[in-house]
Computed example of a mutant assay.
Amino acid sequence: MNLLQFILNILWIAFGGIWMSVAWVIAGIIMALTIIGLPWAPAAFRIAAYTLLPFGSRAVPRTELTGREDVGTGPLGLIGNILWLVLAGWWLALAHVLTAALWAITIIGLPFAWAHLKLAGLALWPIGKVIVPANA
Rank of each mutant, 00 (worst) to 15 (best):
I79D: 11
G16Y: 11
M20E: 06
A100H: 08
I47R: 00
T99D: 15
A48T: 08
W84V: 05
W12V: 04
A93T: 09
F6K: 12
N135R: 11
I7H: 14
D70W: 03
I107S: 08
I30P: 05
P61R: 14
A48S: 12
G16E: 11
M1K: 07
I29R: 02
K118L: 15
F112K: 07
W40L: 02
G28C: 01
L83V: 09
A23E: 03
A41W: 01
A93N: 11
A88D: 00
G67D: 06
L83Y: 06
V97Q: 07
G56M: 09
W24A: 02
A123K: 01
I47W: 02
G77Y: 05
L52R: 02
A49I: 00
G16M: 08
L78G: 03
F112S: 05
L92G: 07
G121S: 10
L98K: 03
A43W: 02
L3H: 11
T106H: 13
I30T: 09
G37Y: 00
I47P: 00
A134S: 10
F55Q: 04
L110I: 15
T106D: 13
I82A: 11
L119E: 11
F45Y: 09
W90D: 10
A32S: 13
G109E: 10
V130P: 05
R62W: 08
I13D: 09
L94H: 14
G56Q: 07
A44S: 09
I10C: 13
K129N: 03
P126G: 14
P42Y: 01
L98C: 08
Y50T: 06
I105H: 14
G17Y: 05
